[in-house]
Design a protein around this nucleic acid. Structure first.
Lengths: 355, 355
DNA sequence: ATCAGCACTGCAACCGATTGCATGACCCGT
DNA sequence: ACGGGTCATGCAATCGGTTGCAGTGCTGAT
């Protein structure tokens, strides 16, 4: 009843039809008459046949694999993206393979092999996982499978992409601080990248926002740099009263260090993060942040991949899918508030000395 | 020079040998004469041939895939495990596929398909990702690939396993609190599982430790339950002065809520976590915890998988590999300290009313 | 009655590497 | 010089579905 060596030909024998018919019954039931279909299905039951994806994929010259590159799996930004991708591929025949490129450090060794149609049917590359130049070069190889990008990247997009408006979102974060009355604002940015450039542009965007941003710094994503940014901030003469961190993780490291030094958040300094990563709502203070719909972004990317793959080579495939831009949300929690009283009087351009 | 349609037979033609020879040159160079090998390798260069793993795997009736099941990818416990696994498989022909089983909720749909040699060459199942009963049942299927377990599980181990001594480690955490002078100790445990049972056993292990544990609770892993545990704790009459949380995430949620209510850590309550998850060292206060060597555990598991797969069916394979037990480390940071003065006098069995 | 058109099914080649078995060359001991 | 052994290599079947093409039978229109 359920031997491990049941093949399509065994089913065919039992059903008294050819393997072609069994194959068709399994993959395109509409091409087979109702009668035959029933017979074959009964035979499948009787034999305990289980479909062999590997063989099918091989014959079809596909892999059934989608590779997703992420810069650092330890960064809590990615789990939701991956869940979204997984959800998006859940009812498809595709298997998701996640590759941590160590922020691109190991890209040559780990990612390069996937730029080959025989290794993956499509690729999902998240911002920061691969130098854009490498992506372009490898993508041009001819052997490369289609790619879908997630996050900020070169404009216009070379591939279908799902993203957010980083500049606008960053501006929104700054606006939140300004609305609370902050007149000296700091910005802790991530390392040089399209993403950080966009966010910086957003922060510096408005005439009057720019005047209020008195301090910016940038460094590697991760708690450690949040911590050093806090140290830097503490050493400042006219400390910004509101600090926007380009990432919740940075914000978390920043807040921890600031509090360790006896300062209070938001009484002494307001901090707003970005991403709305898991857990930050449970800290004290709960982190105010800009939420990215990461799950939905992953899911949408998966959907794009499927469209790309289902669409026969009729058109350029990629170009038509274009870019899906998702909305972010300001999530106000407890890490932002009015600036300390001593700086309440400040207006416009910050003064050189604190009152 | 580099067409996408270069196959082994093209290389053979260019080299003037048979495909068998090319294949052997590629996979078992020692079976080919030095002379021929050079010729073939030159032909490989010239043609730009790239090996087709899918075809190779298919012919060899393997998949080249190792599936790893984890309960929840959003839990910061797993990234390091996955990195370790990835590192362990880095120089092997295996591809790691990560499957989030939603704590086993979706196991039937997501994990079951992999219990089939045609889907994966081996499985890595982490504690909590799959009900042990399902694992046993599916494993017995005959079609199932070998599995390696990570974490606590049924004793004796049915499969090769890498683990830590959860009971001892938990006892160590309690001992740390006791050594600091705590006489009323609380334990916030995870949901019912082999892991939580072992930790509870450890907590309750010693005669005198048991007397000191005045409160235990258990619930789902995650920040939210850490928070509710804190609320529960705050409502207690004779609050434990030291609390051991079975997970850093629980500890984090616990501390956040406690501080939000104006209490200080460790001045008012000491909290020790478990795992040493990323980021917890940057919080305020930095979390004292028991470190699990997660990366090494993943790496060791990968190594076991390879041994299992390399070893021909000569012996039972699994049984001989047994269990690798790794050492944990107490990492003392700032979330634990002496109990508050008001409870310093407490000795031995806690009193019913606070002095 | 005839035939185009359609629906269904079978035949057999095919995806690309692997490998058991056969072959031929050559070596060695007796 | 011959039988047995070793080494290197080639032949061809094989892994398990898939699919282009051809064949069969039936319907409906003329």
């Amino acid at each position: 009843m359920q031997d491990n060596s049941v093949r399509i030909k065994d089913v065919a024998r039992v059903a008294g039809v050819s393997t072609s018919t069994v194959s068709r019954t399994l993959t395109r039931p509409d091409k087979v008459s109702r009668h035959t279909r029933d017979i074959v299905q009964a035979a499948v039951q009787e034999t305990g046949y289980r479909f062999n994806h590997a063989a099918s994929n091989f014959r079809k010259q596909r892999t059934g694999t989608i590779a997703a590159f992420i810069p650092n799996i330890a960064n809590p930004y990615y789990p939701d993206i991956l869940s979204g991708l997984a959800a998006g591929f859940a009812d498809t025949p595709y298997t998701l393979v996640t590759v941590d490129t160590a922020a691109g450090q190991e890209a040559e060794r780990l990612a390069r092999p996937y730029f080959d149609k025989r290794r993956a049917d499509a690729l999902v590359v998240t911002a920061g996982s691969l130098a854009p130049a490498l992506l372009t070069a490898w993508r041009a190889d001819g052997q490369a499978p289609p790619v879908v990008e997630i996050g900020e990247g070169p404009d216009p997009a070379q591939n279908p992409r799902v993203s957010i408006r980083n500049a606008e979102a960053a501006a929104q974060a700054v606006a939140h601080l300004v609305a609370l009355g902050h007149r000296r604002i700091g910005f802790v940015n991530g390392p040089q990248s399209y993403t950080s450039a966009a966010r910086l542009a957003g922060v510096m965007g408005g005439e009057d926002a720019r005047a209020r941003v008195t301090w910016t710094t940038s460094g590697p994503l991760g708690f450690a740099f949040g911590q050093s940014a806090a140290r830097e901030w503490m050493g400042l003469r006219d400390r910004p009263t509101g600090v926007f961190c380009a990432t919740d993780v940075l914000a978390c490291g920043f807040i921890g260090e600031v509090m360790r030094n006896g300062l209070r958040v938001p009484q002494d300094v307001s901090v707003i993060g970005f991403d709305d990563v898991e857990g930050m709502a449970y800290l004290h203070p709960a982190l105010t942040t800009i939420r990215q719909p990461r799950f939905a972004m992953g899911q949408r990317a998966a959907q794009m991949v499927c469209e790309l793959l289902d669409t026969p080579r009729q058109e350029l495939g990629g170009q038509e899918l274009g870019e899906t831009v998702m909305a972010v949300t300001l999530v106000v929690r407890d890490s932002t508030g009015a600036p300390p009283a001593s700086s309440q009087d400040d207006r416009g351009v910050p003064r050189a000395r604190q009152g």
